[in-house]
Amino acid sequence: MTLYLEIIIYLLLIGCAIIALRVKDLLAAIVVLSAYSLCSAFLFAVVGAVDVGFTEAVVGAGLSGLLFLAALFYTSRKSAD
């Protein structure tokens, strides 16, 4: 049971990583990267490291995505000169 769950989460992790690298829109890349962090938090929780999974869910999926979002809104796609 746990093995099947781990395999599904590993496939989700690989899929999220490939999508985050291949997608053109930077906002979509940030969202998929947060989904990647959430999947890795699930993986940590499944294999027994609940504390690490909790930290990953809060910091990786929540706060780092928020900081990436702030940095994306502060920069612009084309240079000014």
């Binding site: 609940v50 504390d51 909790f54 930290t55 809060v58 910091v59 929540g62 706060l63 928020l66 979002l69």
Partner: peptide, 21 residues
């Protein structure tokens, strides 16, 4: 239980950053 000062503080900060956004 799992968690502690860092995780709880990060959750508090995330809630206020949600309001900021």
């Amino acid at each position: 239980s799992p968690g502690g000062g860092f995780q709880g503080g990060a959750l508090l900060g995330a809630s206020i950053l949600l309001l900021r956004l």
